[in-house]
Design a protein around this nucleic acid. Structure first.
Lengths: 337, 337
DNA sequence: GAAATTAATGCTATCGATTGCATAAATACA
DNA sequence: TGTATTTATGCAATCGATAGCATTAATTTC
């Protein structure tokens, strides 16, 4: 590959002069700069980032750790982050962990090895001590999920509030037998969302005894299975709260297979609002988290932090944004029995 | 950050010894190795990739260029590629171009600057000369879309064959007035798919005069608009071929709004088979491209190529995999008039 | 017991870009 | 005309890991 040395040799200059010309140093004559730029262009010179980094420079790389990129939720985040970072010259190194803590450590280690400027992560459920130790070496911020151990910096959704409003909606419609199908409590988001469900009950003075929870992995398969299970209950629910879009899909498909009419026999509220929620028949009432703005805010804040001198850095920062509850056709009053 | 020098100082060894101990060099005594490893662990040493790269080493980074990560199609590719590469120790640097050639050049330039080991790209419609020149400096392979200019290495779907079969399915059902809604011919995939449609007509000796094509950007909005337009034709189609999943979504939503029954009044075949195709009512007949295996094959082939000595490299390689046509409920014989 | 071999480690140059400190030439000022 | 100043450039060290070539000590061989 072409180096400054090649350019220097071609023009009879020293590497210093070439380097300065390319950096537009004031000391270099215009004539020389033009010659150097022309030669660089001609030879197809592209500066070696590794060499630049060696001299204390930073890497313009930001590590992004996500559990899954096929999930619409995370894909939107990747898109928004990528755009925001791009605008400031940062590139994204992608790590897809599949929620596997081992993979997560490996990738974090590589990020540190590559001396990325920072790491934005959606931590896996079982974030390892080792990962935390590695993270301590690099500026980082947590997104969506929150794990104690790394720096206390977090951008997320007010999961509790969102879920509380969804639950309130169902309770206010008169539902008393509600099923909650979601991710296990191993994730911070799982815990918060369940908390929100309970809050809604508590604030209305309704005993949560009639709440049936189905907690496992947030997949459509789990949504389907949960529906089958809840239908065998002595007193089946009249409404379902879903904790994730994949689960919602599983639920509504299973309901249709079981020929249960939505919303007449069963109301459904989903967390997460992919396009098909609007297009489904009936359109699905759903919580729409502000993913886009969340990701953009996080990116801007984080990149600003990367430029902030050490002594001015805040130790702790939590930013929560609140979601919208989009009322559509999948919720209604319970059928009278 | 901790360097080999720090470890050396702590233990009273030279950096060479530390380096060799970490590299498990045979000349170093077991005792020393243990001491060095322990110290490295304790200090939280992570080798500096940049420094390693300076000495002719390669970067374990692979650049991935995609038009859009929110598209299910590309997200699956990213996932599969990421997993395959991970298994061989490669990390993915992500570039989302939004099909903008300017963004594409910038990202490719940065990839070259970062001395990535290779680039896997889905080229944008207007891949610039500058991009091609930069690509010439790095091993690369094209995925899905094919552009002349970069190396003649390509992994893709047999778009023509797939579309031909979908068209044949409709023709064989008796449809003669067919609408084809897809991406413009600026993309290689767009051209090939249209080619396939024509092939089906030709092989059956049917004049393609009754084929109405609606070519633009492959979005759901375009799908909706195209439906509105085709319904105003003097002789509206009895079947629609869609060139992308997004378009399919737009089409079926528009049809439902217009209260046109599928498949009784209108048959629909989509290119691309996201989950909801199966779950929609009626389930959508769709072409399922082997994205997963395509991505995995591409990744394995490419990483193997990265290890191949220069003189043994093939100059040209095209791999096409064929798609499946999944027959579901959205296609049927045309209504008799 | 002297020479030869092996084992364990150190010294130093290298990769490419950057930068402080010379140096050389050209111009300005007294 | 000689010194100060500006302008344009070169030299050499630096960043961290690696690898060829010493070097030293320990052990084996004849």
């Amino acid at each position: 590959m072409v180096t400054t040395k090649d350019i220097a040799k071609k023009l009879g200059f020293s590497v210093s002069t070439v380097g300065r010309a390319l950096a537009d140093d004031a000391r270099i004559s215009e004539q020389t700069k033009l010659a150097v730029r022309a030669a660089a262009e001609e030879l197809g010179y592209v500066g070696n980032l590794a060499a630049r980094m060696m001299r204390g420079g930073s890497s313009n790389l930001i590590g992004l750790i996500l559990p899954d990129i096929q999930n619409d939720f995370f894909a939107s985040i990747a898109q928004a982050l990528s755009e925001s970072c791009d605008r400031q010259g940062y590139r994204i190194v992608l790590s897809i962990t599949g929620d596997d803590p081992e993979t997560e450590v490996r990738h974090i280690r590589d990020f540190v090895g590559a001396r990325v400027s920072g790491i934005i992560l959606v931590p896996s459920a079982g974030l390892k001590r080792e990962s935390m130790a590695l993270l301590r070496q690099v500026p980082h911020v947590q997104l969506l999920r929150y794990a104690t151990g790394p720096d206390d910096l977090w951008f997320g959704i007010d999961d509790s509030d969102a879920m509380e409003r969804a639950t309130a909606h169902l309770l206010d419609l008169g539902h008393r037998h509600i099923a909650y199908v979601a991710a296990s409590e191993r994730l911070s988001t799982g815990r918060r969302r369940l908390e929100g469900v309970h809050n809604a009950y508590r604030k209305r003075g309704i005993a949560p005894s009639s709440l049936a929870t189905f907690l496992d992995t947030p997949t459509s398969t789990w949504g389907e299975r949960a529906v089958h299970e809840m239908l065998t209950l002595p007193e089946p629910p009249t409404a379902i709260l879903s904790g994730s879009a994949h689960v919602t899909m599983g639920i509504i498909v299973a309901l249709r297979r079981a020929q249960i009419a939505v919303p007449d026999q069963m109301s459904v509220v989903g967390f997460g609002d992919p396009n098909w929620c609007e297009w489904w028949q009936p359109p699905i009432t759903a919580i729409r988290p502000p993913i886009q703005s969340l990701a953009v805010n996080c990116a801007l804040w984080f990149m600003d932090r990367l430029r902030t001198p050490e002594e001015k850095l805040v130790k702790s920062y939590h930013a929560t944004s609140s979601s919208e509850l989009i009322l559509r056709g999948s919720t209604g009053a319970p059928a009278s029995r």
